[in-house]
Design a protein around this nucleic acid. Structure first.
Length: 249
DNA sequence: AAAAGCCCCTGGATGC
DNA sequence: TGCATCCAGGGGCTTT
């Protein structure tokens, strides 16, 4: 294992902590990748611009560039993290029960594509929030995985204005939103995600979901359903796109 | 407890 | 061409 510049948090003594360890399994929680080791746990986050590439043993990765920060070298192959903006993270911790792990993983909400994405829990959570629904989706403490693109897209599909206070959502509308979140994320996964500039998957493929976005990145263009010009506003320093005719308060 | 703002960082696109 | 400005798939931390 080698490393270069620090990411969001310094990479610290990873070489010592990882030397000789065995990767026993790989999981995901929210946008954290969890590598279960024979001793300890490695948390990996890609931030906004991170990507992983992998080469099996015997096939070489290209020479490391300035944005390659971390390589996990195993007997089966090498996993490399590239992250130009360095918002990503690689963190070693002893288990999921350490203070560090709990701080990062403990606040995470329900997994949208799993059975635990329960409607009454979702609606109940929304009831307790007065913030705009878009920001509640993005916050990740009620439901995880809904990033900036998919929040706008899910709200469009559900016909809900992003500025609506979360607590105002009726049960039927919460149900519709829940379905929209699941549909949008499942479709995005099928399409390999969204490549706006530098994102790629571990085998170097770009994503294509952005090509079928209904509102995201389409400010001023006609809504694909009704033709009204798509609006772009800012909520919590992030851009939001919506159709003022299709999406009701 | 929850909301709102700030900040981390680099690079590409745009405008003068 | 050169420089300034704005914007970007996230989310932790601090302040209100």
């Amino acid at each position: 294992m080698q490393m270069r510049k620090p990411l969001r948090w310094p990479l610290g003594c990873l070489p010592e902590q990882l030397a000789g360890r065995t990767v026993q399994g790989v999981r995901r929680r929210g946008k954290y990748l969890l590598l279960d080791l024979d001793q300890g746990l490695l948390l990996v986050h890609l931030g906004m611009s991170g990507s992983l590439s992998y080469a099996p043993q015997g096939r070489a990765l290209p020479p490391p560039g300035i944005h390659d920060h971390f390589e996990l070298v195993t007997t089966l192959g090498t996993l490399r993290l590239n992250d130009p903006r360095r918002f990503g993270a690689v963190i070693f911790t002893d288990s999921e029960d350490t203070a560090v792990a709990r701080k990062l993983l403990g606040r995470l909400g329900m997994e949208p594509l799993s059975d635990d994405f329960d409607l009454s829990a979702f609606h109940g959570g929304l009831k307790r929030r007065s913030a705009p629904i878009k920001q509640v989706l993005l916050a990740g403490d009620l439901v995880v995985g809904v990033g900036n693109i998919y929040a706008s897209e899910a709200l469009f599909r559900a016909g809900i204005r992003p500025t609506l206070r979360a607590s105002k959502l009726s049960l039927p509308r919460a149900a519709r939103l829940r379905e929209a979140v699941r549909t949008v994320l499942a479709r995005a996964v099928e399409q390999g995600g969204s490549t706006l500039r530098d994102f790629s998957s571990a085998d170097g493929q770009a994503g294509h979901f952005q090509l079928e976005a209904m509102v995201y990145g389409r400010a001023g263009q006609p809504c694909k359903v009704c033709g009204t010009a798509v609006k772009n506003i800012r909520q919590g320093q992030r851009s939001t796109f919506f159709c003022s005719k299709c999406q009701k308060m």
